[in-house]
């Protein structure tokens, strides 16, 4: 990673707006002052970063250990006694893991896009229109997502069975069914996240556009969505991750290992109390974390692009 790439990221970030220290007198003072300024501005951030990184990584070291040491288990205390890729080989030999990875990417991708589209549309309506029942609908959405789903599996199972008779693609063992069920939650948390965000975009922008003859659809697609792109990226990522790790509904609907998502497959590896395959599970968990991290790496520039900060000035 080069400095060029870093500065490439966009405009100076808002929260920690850069400060210029007062001009120092001598060269030594200047060096001292700039070092102090560096510590105040940047240095402590590195310390926080290193400490938190350790905190984040520490338990995961044991996951990696389980993945690369075929003899390691969930309670292993000694690390990296052996190294082999046996678990990875077993994982791919025991199940169509590549296909399952693809299934997961499809489900995660479509759900993320669908959630962003539907959630953003709803958030726009709530943020920009003052209609009858608006407050009620918002509250209703908030309350619905608090419904404990723990005992809903029978209802979902029966629903999928009968829907499948009408629309085979919404029946058992179809990825599209799982996507549809996940989209049922599209107007949940994410709408609230976006709604809060949309509220920070000054309404004067819309009005200016309206005066210029833009329709509500044009305002939405060309102005608002562009302004809130960081949150769209965040919501896309969050939705992708949550469908990536959801297994309760997916395992109910997807009965064929060829159709499984990674979460179902991973859960299957350790779902048996007496024969949990923690090694293969860890190997699979490491692999399944990669798409998430790559997506984050890719979306980072949108999340921190600071587009809004620039636009508001105009």
């Amino acid at each position: 990673m080069t400095d060029a790439e870093l500065t490439d990221n966009g405009l100076p970030a808002a929260g920690g707006a850069a400060e210029t220290p007062p001009p120092p007198r001598t060269a030594a003072d200047r060096a001292k002052a700039s070092r102090r300024a560096w510590w105040r501005e940047v240095g402590w951030r590195h310390i926080v970063a290193v400490v938190v990184s350790l905190y984040a990584i520490f338990p995961l070291v044991f996951v990696i250990n389980m993945a690369v040491d075929p003899n390691a288990g969930l309670a292993s205390q000694s690390l990296f006694q052996n190294f082999s890729l046996q678990n990875f080989r077993d994982l791919f030999a025991s199940r169509p893991f590549g296909q399952q990875l693809l299934n997961t990417l499809i489900v995660g991708g479509v759900t993320a896009i669908g959630t962003v589209l539907m959630g953003a549309a709803a958030a726009y309506a709530f943020s920009r229109f003052r209609f009858e029942g608006r407050r009620f609908t918002l509250t209703f959405l908030l309350v619905v997502q608090m419904f404990p789903q723990l005992l809903a599996f029978v209802a979902i199972f029966l629903l999928v069975q009968s829907l499948g008779e009408v629309f085979p693609v919404l029946g058992m063992n179809h990825l599209s069914t799982v996507i549809a069920i996940y989209l049922g939650g599209a107007l949940g948390v994410n709408t609230f996240l976006m709604y809060g965000f949309f509220n920070t975009v000054p309404i004067s922008l819309d009005e200016a556009a309206k005066l210029d003859g833009a329709t509500h659809a044009q305002i939405y697609w060309t102005i608002i969505l562009r302004m809130v792109s960081p949150v769209l990226a965040v919501v896309g990522l969050l939705s992708f991750i949550s469908s990536f790790s959801e297994f309760v509904i997916a395992r109910l609907v997807l009965t064929d290992p060829e159709k499984w998502t990674l979460a179902v497959s991973l859960y299957d590896l350790v779902g048996n109390d007496r024969n949990p395959y923690w090694g293969m599970f860890a190997a699979g968990a490491v692999i399944s974390a990669l798409p998430v991290l790559l997506l984050f790496l890719f979306l980072q520039r949108y999340i921190v692009s600071g587009l809004t900060a620039g636009a508001v000035k105009g």
Binding site: L74, A75, S76, Q77
Partner: peptide, 11 residues
């Protein structure tokens, strides 16, 4: 626990 028995005996 089960996991502890597994790891401790193995070690």
């Amino acid at each position: 626990t089960y996991d502890i028995v597994k790891a401790t005996f193995q070690d």
